[in-house]
Design a protein around this nucleic acid. Structure first.
Lengths: 203, 203
DNA sequence: CGCTACTCAATACAAGCGACTTGCAAAGAA
DNA sequence: TTCTTTGCAAGTCGCTTGTATTGAGTAGCG
């Protein structure tokens, strides 16, 4: 048998090179040669692990999605004691914001993916499945909070969850455009959460 | 003197061809030759009116921004009688959503612009000026509403305005990804407005 | 060793890109 | 008319792109 190489690990290394380029020059402007150079390998070797460019892009997207999910999951588990629904929601939502370099790149890759998905029904299907799942997760937390009397019971959990997701999306966009700082975005998110989580009061 | 041609009008025609391509295949994938073909003119003629591709893209963006502003202004003026702050806000915000083909394309062109602006400080400056201006406009309406007792006075007008803008941005994104319908987005926006505009109640 | 499977570099290639040059037609000005 | 300026088409340039191909190098097994 020949020398054994961890294909998956190689693909991850290449993906990381791709992200590094995407975070500075943009994802669209990343050619196979650029990525290979950034990864410090030859074009041929890159093509050995990704037969087409599309294959590389899709892999990189899935990989960064996985990392993002892990990051958020870690944030939740890092909450000490018995986290309240509000704690969990806040951890998830702030975890979705581009606060550090990795999540910044993650969001940019997501935007690039969005750009392709708008004109590609197959790619769009992924998003159509993913977002409602996320919304349901948030809605569950909101319903838990309602039972605990932390959120008014006449709220529509699904709708409020979707509003939160949309809000985070917009806040993220304006972080990347330097319209406001990451800290400001978190503050605005907290304001919204405070409005939601005040039982019978105003929101 | 040679025959007279309205340069501005020609540029607008070409811009419209660009949008038509952008709405189907995406803006990034629109080459000069594609745009020329879509506009029914030769490549040479297109280059006569736009010396570089960048010049064309910038013009097309500014043009569609102008149209969007006109559209929103018309919406406001179409409100009969003396429009309340809430009417005005709702007209602006729904005017920003990609509800018809034109505003859909407008949002897509905006996203493409965003994609370039993330990696270009000069382009980003435009956004950094534009959004706060919009936020101030909305904040003024919110303050008016506070004086009229329609919005709680302990709200932060600037922050609430920024949240509204971010929300619309996120809602727009998910319209284009078919996560929800335009109607659903409007409903979610109305829900948020109702929470804001209920005087001393909840929201 | 010899063999086979795997790794991967180098190069080639066709297609497409934006930018540029040339040339000519048309329309007032002289 | 002749001159000059503008409008525009056609062609071409150098370059980059994604992909395909070729062939050499290498590691482990029989």
């Amino acid at each position: 048998m020949p020398k054994k190489v961890d294909h998956e690990a190689r693909r991850r290394e290449i993906s990381q090179a791709l992200w590094r380029i995407a975070s500075t020059r943009g994802l669209e402007g990343a050619s196979l040669r650029d990525v290979a150079a950034e990864a410090g390998i030859s074009l041929g070797r890159l093509q050995h692990y990704f037969r087409t460019k599309d294959e590389m892009l899709v892999f990189a997207l899935r990989y960064i999605e996985t990392l993002a999910q892990d990051r958020i999951r870690a944030r939740i588990e890092a909450l000490d004691g018995e986290p309240t629904p509000r704690d969990i929601l806040r951890a998830c939502l702030t975890g979705m914001l581009p606060l550090d370099e990795q999540s910044r790149i993650g969001f940019l890759v997501g935007v690039a993916h969005f750009h392709r998905a708008v004109h590609d029904a197959a790619l769009r299907a992924d998003v159509r499945d993913g977002i409602p799942k996320l919304r349901d997760l948030f809605a569950d937390q909101l319903r838990r909070a309602m039972e605990r009397g932390e959120v008014r019971r006449d709220r529509d959990a699904d709708d409020e969850a979707m509003v939160l997701i949309s809000l985070v999306d917009g806040l993220s966009t304006y972080i990347l455009l330097d319209v406001h700082t990451p800290e400001k975005a978190v503050q605005l998110l907290d304001m919204r959460l405070a409005q939601l989580f005040d039982g019978v009061g105003a929101g």
